[in-house]
Amino acid sequence: MSDLLSKLYESSGLYAFFSEDGWKYVIMIIIALTLLFLAIFKKFEPYLLLPIGFAMLLVNIPGTNLFIKETIIENGEEINQYSGMFGYIYYGVSYGIYPSLIFLGIGATTDFGPLLARPKSMLLGAAAQIGIFVTFLGALLLNFTGAEAAAIGIIGGADGPTAILLSSELAPHLLAAISIAAYSYMALVPIIQPPLIKLFTSKKERQIEMTQLREVSKKERIIFPIIVALITIILIPSSAPLIGMLMLGNLIKESGVVPNLVHASGKTILYSVTILLGLSIGATTKATNFLQTQTLMIIGLGLFAFIVATIFGILGGKFMNLVSKEKINPIIGAAGVSAVPMAARVAMKEGKIANPNNYLLMHAMGPNVAGVIGSAIAAGLLLSFFG
């Protein structure tokens, strides 16, 4: 009887907590509970952080075997194989399916009208992407490989699906750290950006009121996704999964002929895939792999990337205000990071604080959606170089 009880105890998760790596599991469970707290009670990116946090909790209970990764050699090439419930779900990440479907849903819920009404706001979205390449260079200086540095740098785009796709292709062993960093900083936009806006703009600049945007025709809205897909994918074929799905989703929305597909892609598919994506990310955070010095470095570089992206967006807005005939409030440059629509809402709020008559939301949405396109293009470039 004692042997049976002993065997039962040794096969339990409780036994593993007292092993050499037991403290790592405890730390990861605490982190998982923290993510769940932030998602539920603070509403920080709840759609992603809730499934990520719960999957993290489950895989760090020893003995569950929900996510098993094995590396085999086939024809002289290393191939990763996954098993367990989360392991099978993870194939959607490893094959780049989930991020692309997320972009389909984003396209179906995005209004590119503000960008079409003021095309030069694309420059602000481009300026914010400088954070990606500055962080890429910083990661190289910290002895990350070129592929790893590219995957880390994309955090500066503040676009979770893009970060997941690029890291799954270039540095799958860093996927968990990069994904959690990307979504955490996206959730912290209302905390990170306001001090930077105040630091890099004067009160007079923040008070600038902008003229109303022109009305965009239906024809323009329909032509835009087709032209962007053609030009971008011809120039950068590796951007096809993200740009192609983003523009398809937007064309479905703007065509007006398939309302059921708009609902399916913008709601049903988007939210279903979001759960699978969150579970996949959380599943890769097993304590023995996640708790490493590299993870802390990635978290730090991610914050650096986001700060640099915001600063360059603001500086781009200041420069545009100087050279443009019409007045441009530099605050909208901060929305050039592609945290849609949160960054645009932060810009509107900061403009209202400086000038109660200021209404910057639609003006900020231009750079904001431009940032989505910009981060996807940047990911395509990096994938071309290091993929």
Rank of each mutant, 00 (worst) to 15 (best):
L14P: 00
N368A: 11
T135H: 11
S6P: 04
G266V: 04
T201R: 07
S19I: 00
F103P: 01
Q294D: 13
G371P: 09
I61M: 03
V369C: 07
A309E: 05
N75E: 15
I328N: 03
I252D: 03
P194E: 12
P51F: 05
S384Q: 15
P119Q: 14
I236H: 08
I331K: 07
V228S: 05
I281E: 09
G249W: 05
L14Y: 04
S12G: 03
P237Q: 14
V93E: 14
P241W: 09
A370N: 10
A181G: 05
F136C: 12
G157C: 06
K352L: 11
T288V: 13
I130K: 05
L57F: 15
I299A: 14
M342I: 14
S19P: 00
S239R: 07
G316L: 05
I89N: 14
P259K: 11
L4R: 13
L38M: 15
G366R: 02
G138Q: 13
G278W: 13
T135P: 12
E10K: 15
M28G: 03
L14N: 01
T284P: 00
L276P: 06
T310A: 10
L33T: 12
Q81L: 15
L248H: 06
G87K: 09
S11N: 15
Y9C: 00
I269H: 12
P367S: 12
A117Y: 02
L382G: 02
L36Y: 11
I353P: 02
N355A: 07
A149C: 11
I227V: 15
L36W: 13
V26G: 06
A264Y: 11
S202I: 08
T274M: 14
I155E: 11
F385E: 13
F385A: 13
G317K: 05
A379H: 00
A344I: 10
K352H: 12
Y271M: 12
L383N: 14
T268M: 09
N368L: 08
V59H: 03
I231Y: 02
F312V: 00
I331H: 09
I269K: 09
K318Q: 06
A347M: 10
G63K: 02
V340Q: 06
Y47M: 04
T293H: 04
T64N: 08
N143R: 08
F17S: 04
M297Y: 10
I30V: 15
L361R: 07
K318R: 14
S6K: 15
V257M: 10
E74F: 09
L175I: 11
G63T: 04
A364S: 15
H173F: 01
I152D: 08
F86I: 02
T109G: 07
S202P: 05
F112W: 08
I373H: 09
F86Q: 04
G374D: 07
L101F: 11
I307A: 05
G333E: 03
N358I: 11
F67I: 04
F136T: 10
V346L: 04
I31C: 08
F112E: 11
F306S: 04
F312Q: 01
Y9S: 00
A150D: 12
L315H: 01
K325N: 10
V134N: 09
L303D: 04
P172E: 09
P190H: 05
N65S: 02
F103L: 15
G302R: 12
V228G: 02
V189Y: 08
S6Y: 06
P62V: 02
N60C: 06
I73L: 15
P356Y: 10
N329F: 04
A139E: 14
L382C: 01
P330K: 03
A139N: 10
S217Y: 00
I61S: 01
